[in-house]
Simulated scan of single mutants.
Amino acid sequence: MKKKIVVCTDLGPALSLLTLRDDLDVVVWPHAVDTECPRAWLLENVQGASGLVVCFKERVDGEVIKAAGSGLRAVSTISVGYDHLDLPLLASRNVQVGYTPDVLTDAVADSAVMLALMASRRTNLTTSLVTSNAWPAFQWTPFALSAPQLSTTLFSPKRTVGFLGFGRIAQAVLRRLTLGFGVSDAIYTPRPEAPPQVMRDAELLRGLMPNLHSLRAVDMPTLAADSDFLFVLAPGGEATRHLIDESFLRRMKPTSVLVNNGRGSVVDSTALAKALKEGWIWGAGLDVVEEEPHVGVKHVLPAEQGVREKCVVVPHLGSATHETRAEMARLTVVNVLRGVDGEQMESGLDLGRWQ
């Protein structure tokens, strides 16, 4: 019998790696290029599947896993996050889980630096002067529209960047900021259960000297108080929900900039709006928002006067480059193929911690 693989999302040219195999029955959501896969379609078509391909929009929970049946061998998601997957249940059923962590590191790191620059220079405000034809009437003065600078200079040689979460993407951001912008000091707060990474940090510091003078782990209050630019790159879930709350934001500098390329749930949107409006921090650049995709004209961040001028929001596009998305799709397909064939995935989660 042919092994059934259900594909809920657009895989581009990588889909041919599945459809060209004669031993597979590949069932694809027919409108994947344009629309999200309806849950009703997923529940109907996943029955009897050996493999399932999803993106972060599709919840693979007990209902889906039960509908698939005992033959499910592999779930592969075209994302680095896996909050949408019921990992304890999948682990209990010995289902392999594939994801795409490493291939999007550079694209997301580029995006984080972009958002830091956009937020610090308040591009919502400055570009509106052009698009609203207000530039001719704007009264220029030497300090008009001036902003905190990301790079160091001879007359301002110290810049501290902070990271909530210090995995692959955070380290890639640090390399860009150190080598390209001369950032001198870095601090980070790791996961509470993470062991000290003394050897890793020493190696990173050694590789980025003489530009980088210090790299150290700190507690949350210190992270808030000392960061000139703070990059949120922590995973989602209840353990990290609203770690960036009102008390944290009140500790930050009025010239500091917050960037979130991790998960929207880590930052309390209401508290952030208040911080921006009342001037606790300078600006924010967000690739992810807790309420996404319902972030529009009525949402407090892009809509409220006194907030939108200081907050840049883009629609979760950190990994959206041609090269990265193509490689993510290829890896997603390879993962599900190896899983249904009984082989180890090229990039699979270690489910031991969920068993």
Rank of each mutant, 00 (worst) to 15 (best):
M345T: 04
A186L: 11
T127M: 14
E327K: 11
D106E: 15
F166P: 05
V7P: 00
T9W: 04
R206M: 11
I65G: 07
M118H: 10
C8N: 08
G167Y: 08
V60Q: 01
A144H: 06
I281P: 06
S92D: 13
R159M: 12
R353M: 09
F143R: 11
R325V: 12
L104Y: 09
P30V: 05
V198I: 13
Q149L: 15
S347P: 01
R325E: 11
E290L: 02
S50W: 14
P302D: 03
D226E: 15
A112H: 05
S184M: 06
L276W: 09
E309T: 07
G162V: 14
R241K: 15
T160H: 02
Y82G: 04
P157L: 10
P148Y: 02
P148W: 06
D10T: 03
V108Y: 00
Q355A: 12
S269R: 00
G180P: 12
L129R: 12
I65N: 07
P88N: 13
P88A: 10
H316K: 08
S214K: 04
S146D: 13
S50M: 03
L18H: 03
S76I: 04
H31E: 14
V7S: 02
W140K: 13
H213E: 10
R330L: 07
S151G: 14
R122V: 07
R21I: 09
C55K: 12
S184T: 15
R59F: 12
I169P: 10
D83Y: 03
A91M: 11
V295G: 03
E58F: 05
T9K: 09
G182Q: 12
V295S: 03
W135S: 04
G296N: 07
S214N: 05
R93K: 14
L331F: 00
V307H: 02
L115D: 08
I281F: 13
E246T: 08
S16L: 02
G180S: 13
T189H: 15
G285N: 11
A32K: 10
V130S: 10
R308M: 09
E44H: 13
A67F: 03
G262A: 09
V336R: 06
K2E: 07
V6S: 10
A234N: 06
V60T: 13
V266K: 08
V218P: 01
R216N: 14
N335C: 06
W282Q: 04
G12M: 12
C55A: 14
D245L: 08
C311V: 03
V257S: 05
G339K: 08
P88T: 08
F138W: 03
V97R: 13
V161K: 06
T332L: 08
A271G: 11
P157V: 08
V54G: 01
T153W: 10
V312N: 02
T332Y: 05
Q47M: 12
V336H: 09
